[in-house]
Structures are given as C-alpha cells and as structure tokens.
Design a binder for these strands. Structure first.
Lengths: 184, 184
DNA sequence: CTTTCTGCAAAGGCTTTGCAGTCCG
DNA sequence: CGGACTGCAAAGCCTTTGCAGAAAG
C-alpha cells in the first residue's frame, strides 16, 4: 500500500487536557516579515519579484503549519481561477524558500514536509503513526547532546533532524476505548 | 539537480586519528543468526523459505553497512548470472526484513536507507553532507530526553530517528587544504 | 496439489525539467 | 529589450503492483 494523501499536520496545542507539563513553541520576534526577507533574498541574487512568488510566500506563511506540496496546492486557487500557480512553480518556489532560510524541509513517509523556519525557533517533532499528526517540541538538552556527539566524531554540525515516532494521546485514548468496546 | 547514485555509506572507524574520544558501536550477542531469525519469522507467518530470500538475507548481513536498494542490487549477481534476484524481489524482501526486525530503514535525500537492526544496538547517525558518509553514535542521554519529551506530550514512543547533518573530519580537512591551495 | 513466490514489465507517486511564450526590471 | 520566470507536458527516480509461470510445503 502506498501512503494516502491524507496527512493532517497540526502544531502542538497550547493547553494540556491532562494538566501535564507542556512546552509551547512560540513565534520569535523578527525584524523583517517572511515576505520582506524573501524579497531581500531575491534581490541579492538578481532574481525577480513575480506575482506567483509573492502570492506563494504569503500563502505559506498565512498559517503556522507543517505541509507538503500536495496540501499547499490543494488550498491554492485551481487552474483557471485567479492567482493560479502551476505545480512546477510551487515546487520551484518551495525550494527557493528553503534556500532563503524561510522554510525547513524533511522527508516523512516518502513525501517532503515543509516547516516554517524563519521567525520560528528551532524545534523537533513527535509524529503520530496512527493519525499522522506532527507535534513540536523544544529541548536545549537535545542540542547539547547533538553538539557533544558531533564533537566526539570531529563533525562540524550544520543541522539535525529528530523525529520521535509513536502514538499520540488522542489516538491512545481512541484505541483504549475501542478495545473496551471490543470486549463488550 | 537530482541526487546522484553515488552514496558512500560507512560505519564509524574504530580508531581516532586525532586522539579524541570515540564511542564505538559494537555488535550485540544474539542467540540466533539473522538467517535463523528470518527463517523463524517466515515460519511463524506461514511464508516460504525460498532461495532468493535466503540468498538476500545472507548478502545483507555479509557486511555491516548502511545501504539502499540500489547499492544492494549493484553488488548482487546480474540478470542471467547464478543467484540473480529481480529488483521486485529485492524490494519485497527488504520490506520483509524490516517487518522481521532484522533491518531498520529511514529516508535520506529521497532514497530509503537500510541499517542492520538485529544483533546491533540502537544508535543514531551523523551524516556528512559533503561525502554522504554515515557515521553512527550512541547516546543514552538522547534516549532519556526522547522519553521525557514524549511523556510531556502524552506520546507513547515507538521509535525515533535522529540524524545530525554536517561535515565530517576528513571533509573539513580536505576543505581547509583546498582553501590553503587556493591562496597560493 | 495448492498456495505462495518470482520475474517481468508496466504503473504509481512525487518531483524535476525542457521548452516556448510571458513578464520583470 | 534581454534575461529570468511560468505553465505545460513530458520525463525521471525510486518503489510498488498485476500477472502468468515456477516453486515450496
């Protein structure tokens, strides 16, 4: 079976229904908006400020969310509608956003997932293998270990990617409930 | 540009040329060989003990190395030669090895990389973005943080994947050398 | 003998690319 | 105006799948 096209991705909820400790990943203060930052990037490289690029960056930063190309395309205007952008241009622009430092990307289940980088602090992910939701977490200790391990091996760190796979609270609950029902 | 098909992947060298601390990832003592373990897995599920499966598991465990499907296929007999195994069967068997717990797999640069799991301790990776080499490291602290972060979010951990990207010692040296030459 | 497996070739999913027309600067 | 950009369709890459013949139990 091939991955379905349903990949709900959400950020960590601010509240904790169980009253447990929750780290919340907050937006950072930045002097330039993502749009301005991208504009700067384009100018530096002698690239052009097109309507498609402006529109895409605006859409990408309209909500803080993880997404893949397909999800982005799904919420953009269709062919024939105003502001339609072709698939090729979407892929090309996503790559530029990564180069510009606006987005991060990583592979998950064979698709490329994009994540806001600019104006957002470093973080890692918890991935629910049941509902495919992505939660974020932050850990300075993790960074320390990363740097220590890299140093041990003479590595100069550029970046890292940590994904914890498992089952989220909601899916665990749903499963327990189901098991209970199955017993009846 | 698309990823090239050259992906040297090597394990961590045992010696440290710089005399720095090195963690070495050692093989574990296991009661069954990978072949025996796989055989057991097949029997349990009523699957068959074919020559192709036996041959592939043997090849996969002949050397401790990370590899992708292409690299494995490259060192197998060609079509027409003795013990030839089709691409489809290689992919099918790799998947079975993962199901059987013999191999781990993860995505890197768009390809699926396989890693010995059975008879080998949990470990994570350092990935050199210059030479595409994969080194291994082990850290119990990392596991503690993983569990702590998961607990904070009500997650039941199944597994995790951590990859530190950067430049390895050898590539750093090569680069320094090159810069020096460029100055002459 | 029956069911699973294999090899083949074709298809699939995601992403990139060549090209001709379009648009930015 | 010239080079960069876009949309389109086609190709590419890696992996999976349908099917008919082969093989395991």
């Amino acid at each position: 079976m091939v991955q379905s096209s349903q990949h709900p991705v959400e950020t960590s909820p601010a509240d904790s229904p169980d009253g447990e400790v929750m780290t919340k990943v907050e937006a950072l203060e930045v002097s330039l908006s993502p749009q301005e930052r991208f504009s700067e990037y384009l100018q530096t490289r002698g690239l052009r400020q097109t309507n498609q690029r402006k529109f895409l960056v605006e859409q990408v930063f309209a909500q803080h969310d993880h997404f893949d190309a397909e999800e982005l395309i799904d919420r953009l205007p269709r062919r024939g509608e105003e502001n339609y952008v072709s698939t090729a241009t979407v892929y090309r622009t996503l790559r530029e956003c990564v180069d510009a430092g606006l987005l991060n990307c990583f592979q998950l289940d064979g698709r490329t997932v994009y994540d806001h980088d600019y104006g957002y602090p470093q973080h890692d992910h918890l991935y629910c293998t049941q509902c495919r939701k992505l939660l974020e977490f932050q850990s300075d200790e993790l960074l320390e270990i990363r740097d220590k391990m890299a140093a041990m091996h003479g590595f100069r760190v550029e970046s890292h990617r940590m994904i914890i796979q498992g089952v989220c609270r909601e899916c665990s609950r749903a499963r327990r409930k189901k098991r209970k029902q199955d017993l009846v």
